[in-house]
Design a protein around this nucleic acid. Structure first.
Length: 359
DNA sequence: AAGGCGGGGGT
DNA sequence: ACCCCAGCCTT
């Protein structure tokens, strides 16, 4: 079903000229900056990205610098932002750009789309904002705004629905201000036609065109089927300490939190007795143990209920687990990337006063 | 087409 | 609790 959006263009652009948000990546129209911001913004709110963007650009001022970065440093700069494959894909794309495009992003929608981590939304955003090409950039904001405008009950999780909208918007892209048009839809979605709570239709420049507003059905749109429920996992976290260093291990290279570091942890909630038994199996006899209490972390599709033990070793004669390393407090702060899931335990360590074994 | 993949803020 | 966020990749 085709929908005509030509009637919104002028009012939307006028509204954007007066009301656009001031954002760090809007200060200089460098395609590299636009790209970094768009990757960070995938499924992530503007407010969360602000603190990461400038630090990342300072650390890697050019695509070449990004292409050569050590993975550990990349992940550390991404720590807490989530969806860590985004930054690995971005580096892979940076290497392609250095090899195939002389270190500059191609001003070509199809070429952008082929780069790792760039889908139809991000290709459209870079092409229109950085290169002024007349292509749409359809994200969650744009889907919400347009489905309310047209009063459509389409399921916006269907790829077909997004493709149709891209076609409809392509037909009305303003040739001279395509980037502004795309960003206007997103700013409107983020500040007026908001996702949670009542939209601010009184302040909306498009209310006079909006079917959802006229029919008072904004709270029903857009339509998105409810998500699958999460599965619960109980885990036991071992904060092993020896001479002011802490045991950490690298997670597998695939799956949840791939390649990040973590405290040794086990499936299920282990009692004190079970944990003592486990330590005996590993031939650890000289230690003190303290119950750290529980912590919860919610991912989109899993929920961890964690129980922690702080175990201070008084002697260490042998390896405990393959691949385990001992990290100082500074290493935990500045070098290794630990997911936020463990923050209840890491924060406690970082906050402790420096221990002085001497004197 | 469906599911995996983080973390946080709003209601 | 449940919602969704400047989505993309793999299966």
């Amino acid at each position: 079903m085709k929908t005509d959006y030509s009637y919104i263009v002028e009012d939307l652009l006028n509204w954007y000229s007066e009301n656009k948000r001031i954002l760090p990546w809007r200060e200089k129209p460098d395609p590299y900056y636009i790209w970094v911001s768009e990757i960070m913004l995938q499924q992530t709110r503007v407010e969360a990205v602000k603190g990461y963007f400038s630090r990342f650009i300072s650390a890697f001022p050019t695509i070449k610098a990004l292409s050569e970065a050590p993975e550990e440093q990349l992940l550390k700069l991404w720590e807490g932002l989530g969806y860590y494959n985004r930054v690995r894909n971005m580096q892979k794309a940076a290497q392609t750009i250095v090899a195939d495009y002389n270190g500059s992003l191609p001003a070509d929608y199809t070429a952008l789309l082929k780069l790792s981590g760039i889908g139809s939304y991000t290709a459209g955003a870079i092409a229109s904002i950085a290169f002024k090409m007349p292509v749409p950039a359809v994200d969650g904001n744009v889907l919400r705004v347009t489905k309310r405008l047209s009063g459509s009950y389409d399921d916006i999780t269907q790829p077909k629905v997004k493709k149709e909208l891209e076609t409809d918007l392509l037909a009305v892209m303003p040739g001279n201000r395509s980037g502004d048009f795309n960003q206007a839809l997103m700013d409107l979605g983020a500040t007026i036609c908001i996702p949670n709570g009542k939209p601010l239709c009184d302040a909306c420049p498009l209310a006079k065109f909006c079917i959802a507003f006229q029919q008072n059905i904004t709270s029903d749109l857009p339509v998105r089927p409810s998500k699958k429920s999460r599965r619960l996992e109980n885990r036991t976290i071992l904060v092993l300490e020896y001479q002011d260093k802490f045991a950490i291990m690298k997670r597998p290279s695939k799956g949840l939190l791939a390649g990040l570091w973590e405290f040794p942890n086990l499936d299920g909630h282990l009692s004190i007795e079970k944990t003592e038994g486990l330590l005996k199996e590993y031939r650890i006899f000289s230690y003190s143990m303290e119950l750290l209490g529980s912590a919860k972390h919610i991912f989109s599709h899993v929920e961890w209920h964690m129980l922690g033990y702080r175990i201070k070793l008084f002697s260490l004669e042998h390896e405990i687990w393959d691949g385990m390393i001992w990290a100082s407090k500074k290493d935990l702060q500045y070098t290794f990337t630990l997911p936020t899931a463990f923050s209840a335990y890491t924060k406690q360590i970082i906050a402790e006063k420096e221990q002085h074994t001497k004197c």
